[in-house]
Structures are given as C-alpha cells and as structure tokens.
C-alpha cells in the first residue's frame, strides 16, 4: 500500500512543481503513465479559460480534494494542444476533472508518514538543476518531510503540541484557540447547526492529543476521512469567519469585483476548492499560529527555496510550523533545530 503510493508520488512529484519545458519532458511522461490517456490529454485545454482559478492557482491553498498535483502544469501545457482536437462539453470536462481528483485522492493518504528529506531529492533526480539545487539548500536546515493533501496545517500543529509534552502551555493555547473559534464563527453569523459537528471533532482531537503516544497514532486519526474532513471543514469556516469579520482589511485585495461573501463562499468555505494565501493569513491570525511556507518553484533567479512567513497579530509562542508548497498541495517540513522526538 505504502509502496504503491510512494511510486505514484515519485511519478507525479516533478510534474507538480516543474512548470518549465525542460522538466515537463520526463514528468509529463510519468503523469501520462499514471493516468488513462483519455483523461490526461483532453482535459488540458478547457481548464485554461477558467480565469479565476488559473490566476489564483499560483497562490492557491489546496484542500485534499484539489490536490491534483499536476494541475497548474497542465494548464500551461494546454496551450500547445490544438483546440480543434478537443470536442468535449463542459459537463464532460467536469466529470473527467472529478475522476482525476478522485483518483488522486484515493491514491494518497490524507497525511502520510514522515520521511527523510532525501525522499524529496529523489523525486527530482531527473528534474532540473534548479530544483535539485534548491532542495539541496533546503536540506541543510530541514531533515524530514511529511507528504499530505490538505490537512498539513492542522496535523503539523497538533503534532507539535503532542510532542511538546514538556511545554503544556502549547496544549492549553491550542485548546483555547479552538474553543475561541466558536465565537468567531458565531460572530460571522454562521449557524451553530452548520458548523458544530465539525467544530466538536476538532475540539475533541486537540483536547485528547496528549493521549496519543506517537505521531503515528495521531496520523491514524488524521487518516480517518470522517475526522480529517471535519477538521479541514472547521478550519475553512474559521478562515472564512475571520475574513468576513475583518472585511475592511482584506476586501481591498479581492479581484474581479468580488465581495468577501462571494469570495468566501466560492473559495474558502467550499470543500475541495483552492483559495489563495489570504486563507493562510486568516488561519494564522484566527488561531494565533505562525507558519512559514517554503515555495519550491522552478524560478531560476534564486538558489534557495523562498520562505514566506505568516504571523499572527499576537506574540508567537512557538516556532513557526513549516509547510512546503508545490503547485497543488502543501507538505509538512521539519526543521533540524526542532527536536521532534519520536518522529519515525
């Protein structure tokens, strides 16, 4: 099972983060092998006109359903496919998109076991020098990673709390932040009926997180769809509630004349939708957690992976969680200076 998904990861990995021509040769072939050919080629052209998504893709915050790791690459590649060859209705395209997403979703666990960062290097063995260089640099400060689709933030946070048994205030702060989110959700005029089930699942997990003996036990909880979806949904609603209650600060950044309510309903609240980094900002501030996102891109002008900090308004009480962004999804990175005892 794991062996199987490892192989798929390796195949789709370079495709996910290599928008350049040189990379897509090997990656494209790998992706083609992984997907039925009919699903692979025709899908390409029609995605491009979906203006909003295409524009936002770069800054996207994926959720588990959207983790088609190849998506942005495919959009780019689509330009070269003559339109006349593709005769699909919009509905067919959507059905195929869903099929690909489902396939992807079923192939990978929601959150995976942590692995040595060398695994990331392996993904790019045949990739461009830029990627290999950046990962080499990354490995000087980070030693492990955990692949995930969608739940990276919650898992990274709860795992940190769980492992920091000598710092009980981390747990207290986390429980408090989750409890406080209920008031935020009510302030944003969400109905209790609509969010309570999700909220209670998250609260239950964070309250009991110290009882998990190892990250693997926590991992089991996160690999349960019922639990994982609830936490993802809860966090999405929290992000939405934060943006709605801070419209003055964030509405000016919306594009296409969207209102904050429209933006939240289309991109933040709905499961499986990508949304931009505004969602990461909202989460860090609403839950008082700092995050650093490492952007691994094919940008050749830099030798280093670009880190972007997202800070809460309050004084951070623990080092930032580190997430690795590649188009389509976030993985968790572990910084060397953190002693994460017990991470296997």
């Amino acid at each position: 099972m794991h062996q199987h998904s490892e192989t798929l990861y390796t195949a789709s990995g370079p495709a996910a983060a290599s928008p350049t021509e040189s990379d897509s040769t090997s990656a494209g072939a790998a992706t083609a092998a992984a997907l039925p050919p009919t699903l692979n080629a025709p899908i390409v052209t029609p995605i491009a006109p979906a203006t909003t998504e295409a524009v936002l893709a770069d800054l996207s915050m994926p959720s588990q359903q959207d983790a088609i790791s190849g998506a942005p690459t495919t959009v780019g590649a689509g330009a070269s496919v003559p339109k006349s060859e593709v005769q699909l209705t919009d509905e067919q395209i959507l059905t195929q998109m869903q099929a690909i997403k489902d396939e992807e979703a079923n192939a990978h666990p929601l959150v995976d076991v942590s692995v040595d960062l060398a695994e990331l290097e392996k993904e790019y063995e045949n990739g461009s020098a830029t990627f290999r260089h950046k990962i080499k640099n990354l490995s000087e400060t980070h030693d492990r990673m955990r692949r995930s689709r969608g739940d990276a933030f919650a898992f990274a946070w709860f795992e940190r709390v769980m492992l920091a048994k000598e710092r009980p205030e981390l747990h207290a702060n986390a429980v408090k932040a989750i409890e406080d989110s209920k008031d935020l959700l009510l302030a944003a005029e969400f109905e209790l009926l609509a969010f309570e089930d999700f909220y209670l699942v998250t609260l239950d997990i964070i309250k009991s997180v110290l009882h998990f003996a190892t990250p693997d036990e926590l991992l089991l909880a996160f690999q349960n769809d019922e639990i994982s979806n609830s936490i993802v949904m809860h966090f999405r609603l929290v992000a939405s509630a934060f943006l709605k209650t801070h419209q003055d600060d964030y509405a000016p950044f919306l594009e296409f004349g969207q209102t904050m309510d429209e933006f939240c309903s289309m991109h933040v609240e709905a499961m499986g939708r990508e949304s931009e980094e505004m969602m990461v900002i909202a989460l860090t501030k609403a839950l008082r957690i700092s995050i650093e996102v490492a952007y691994l891109s094919g940008d050749t002008s830099a030798d280093e992976v670009n880190f972007l900090p997202f800070l809460p308004d309050t004084e951070p009480y623990m080092p930032p969680l580190v997430l690795l962004y590649r188009p389509g999804h976030y993985d968790i990175l572990y910084r060397k200076s953190h002693c994460l005892d017990g991470v296997v």
């Binding site: 909003t52 969400f190 109905e191 609509a194 969010f195 999700f198 949904m233 609603l237 296409f256 969207q258 209102t259 429209e262 309903s265 289309m266 609240e269 709905a270 499961m271």
Partner: peptide, 9 residues
Amino acid sequence: SSSERWSPV
C-alpha cells in the same frame, strides 16, 4: 459567480 453555491454552511 455570484450565485449561491453549496457548502456545508
């Protein structure tokens, strides 16, 4: 794009 969509809320 402005029309109301399904979400768990």
